[in-house]
């Protein structure tokens, strides 16, 4: 239990919203067994913003898919407010790295999608979707189809669509990976602003260090295969935050600190992928 106390060093007596307890997941492939996530434990407090950072292939998506319920077969336990999570449930929402808007629905119909599926009547769901589009800054684009919008706007639609279901926990798997740097920064600002407003417990996967520092209360660094938690960095920068503080000395110190730990894992990942390429 020693690693547990290290992770949960402030709110020891309050029940965490989300508890990941000794979770392990292996895949059996033609080439043998791959342990994607190895014995990961983590407590996340209500309203906390956590980023997970680690080299490609270290098991970040696998971990998120288990929390989100897309992978139901794993060892260990995931508890939301004390209840075990296996399979998808409305209180946990996910935003994906890949383009995930429905191309046949307009922006507002995309956002209203989960409400429609849940049987909310038309007027109410449209009004709600309109509010959420406004929240992500897409007022005026209600009736545009995704193909008529930029990648950043489509990702904001996807975020609004997930928020429409009012999840307690928001999981985002590299949601800005496909976007250019400026859009990424501005969208990051939008996400902190919304998260501070709605106080959702948020788990963000990223491989961008400054993004992790910019948005999070804590940053988790994962090791390269098998995916374990290497270190947790508490980001005690003041809120409200914006991308403008990225020039500050304190910010740079956090980035350097995280890179120091991440570097080793990233080079392991690089060596492995080079070895795999050479073997081919």
């Amino acid at each position: 239990m020693s690693d547990m106390t290290a992770l949960d060093n402030t709110a020891a007596d309050t029940l965490p919203t989300l508890r990941i307890d000794r979770v392990t997941k292996s895949f059996h492939t033609a080439k043998g067994k791959i342990t994607a996530v190895d014995d990961v434990s983590l407590d996340i407090r209500q309203g906390e913003f956590i980023s997970i950072i680690g080299p490609s292939g270290c098991g970040k998506s696998t971990l998120m898919n288990m929390v989100g319920g897309l992978i139901a077969d794993f060892d260990g336990q995931i508890l939301l407010d004390g209840k075990a999570v296996r399979g998808c449930q409305p209180s946990i929402g996910m935003v994906f790295q890949e383009e995930s808007t429905f191309p046949w629905r307009t922006a507002i119909e995309n956002v209203a999608f989960p409400l429609e599926a849940a049987g909310m009547e038309r007027d109410r769901r449209v009004a709600r979707a309109r509010e959420l589009l406004d929240l992500v800054g897409l007022t005026g684009f209600e009736n545009h189809y995704p193909s008529e919008l930029s990648g950043g706007m489509r990702q904001r639609i996807a975020i609004a669509r997930t928020l429409a279901f009012e999840p307690k926990v928001l999981l985002m798997d590299e949601p800005f990976a496909a976007l250019d740097e400026q859009t990424r920064l501005l969208l990051g600002d939008k996400v902190v602003q919304i998260q501070q407003q709605l106080r959702q417990t948020t788990l963000l996967i990223t491989h961008n260090i400054s993004e992790a520092v910019h948005l999070s209360d804590r940053v988790l660094i994962m090791t390269f295969r098998p995916g374990r938690i290497k270190r947790v960095v508490e980001i005690n920068l003041p809120r409200p935050r914006s991308s403008e503080m990225m020039g500050s000395e304190k910010f740079a110190k956090f980035v350097a600190e995280i890179w120091h730990d991440l570097r080793e894992e990233a080079s392991k990942g690089l060596r492995e992928s080079e070895a795999a390429a050479a073997a081919r």
């Binding site: 890949e98 995930s100 599926a117 669509r161 997930t162 279901f165």
Partner: peptide, 14 residues
């Protein structure tokens, strides 16, 4: 059909 779209549906409990 892209699997991510199916995953979106699953997370919304369709």
């Amino acid at each position: 059909v892209r699997s991510v779209l199916v995953d979106v549906g699953r997370t919304f409990g369709l």
